[in-house]
Design a protein around this nucleic acid. Structure first.
Length: 272
DNA sequence: CTCAGATCCTGTGCGC
DNA sequence: TGCGCACAGGATCTGA
């Protein structure tokens, strides 16, 4: 579900809900495991810890506590909300000192909820292999992409979705960005010219920033931390628009599975 | 080493 | 109406 703009949106929502450096009074989990398993002992470590700060690292949301980091990844269907009521697929309940309950819900359970000591942050394998962040790091430009693509035979769409190269771009924004850049998704990465790389990085930045401004894309179940929908789905140019007319040239948008993921492009506007 | 495919799950929507 | 199948925003492991 969530790519960089959705994660950024949830992170901002959580910041607004947790402005007072709330303290975790109690924390509990369901019997079902998420991607990772977490013992009750690990869970209880965060009791009485203050929530100092919330930030995003790639597609992870990190809660900085006094002595620990809470690591949250939304997988495909994860969401955070504040609500007393219990719902199906609620997996984590965090009771705060202001009597509110922060809940993590995740039907497919591809998400991650983990707790690590702050000092273990740098050696955590989930974070050591991450690529550049197009939104947070200014070195992300055409020259940079040109350099890192020289040895890859992968289709560029798969390349920009590879979190060890570029973080935050998922299946929707990969198709959208390449459409905006006028580059065919199956172009092998090493064949791209420096100019093409420049167009791709600029298109990725524009797409991600616009989607963040829209509060993300809600196809079916994505919700912001406050429960509202994003509205970038109304601005999608190719994703989910198979056999519909390209807004620019009127050709019919094509689609095909690429690396197991559905991929959309305009056969006329996007060149290999 | 690189890369494609299978895999982990549940829910939804479609064709029959 | 009901059933089975394909597919869904991600990341990781396996094996070619």
């Amino acid at each position: 579900m969530p790519e960089l703009p959705e994660v950024e949106t949830v992170k901002k929502g959580l910041e607004l809900l947790l402005t007072k450096q709330q303290v975790i009074i109690e924390i509990s989990k369901s019997s079902k495991k998420l991607r990772n398993s977490l013992s009750l002992r690990q869970l209880s470590q965060v009791k009485n810890q203050k929530i100092l700060k919330i930030f995003r690292k790639a597609k992870y949301i990190i809660f900085e506590l006094s002595d620990y980091y809470i690591i949250s990844h939304l997988g495909m269907t994860g969401s955070w909300r504040i609500e007393d009521e219990q719902r199906k697929h609620d997996h984590i309940k965090i009771h705060l000192n202001d009597r509110r309950i922060l809940t993590y819900n995740d039907p497919r359970r591809f998400g991650v909820f983990d707790i690590i000591k702050k000092m273990d942050w740098l050696s955590d394998s989930r974070f050591t292999h991450l690529g550049i962040d197009p939104v947070l790091e200014s070195q992300f430009n055409g020259n940079y992409l040109f350099k890192i693509t020289r040895k890859s035979k992968k289709p560029i769409k798969n390349f920009i979705m590879d979190q060890s190269q570029i973080v935050g771009v998922g299946n929707i924004y990969a198709s959208e960005s390449l459409y905006l850049a006028g580059i065919h998704p199956m172009t092998q990465a090493f064949r791209l010219s420096e100019m093409s790389c420049h167009r791709i990085t600029e298109a990725i930045k524009e797409t991600l920033f616009n989607a963040i401004e829209c509060g993300g894309t809600t196809i079916s179940d994505f919700r912001q931390a406050g429960g509202s929908k994003g509205y970038f789905q109304n601005l999608l140019l190719v994703y989910g628009r198979e056999n519909k007319a390209c807004n620019f040239c009127n050709s019919l948008i094509e689609s095909q599975m690429l690396g197991g993921r559905n991929t959309f492009w305009c056969p006329k506007c996007q060149k290999v």
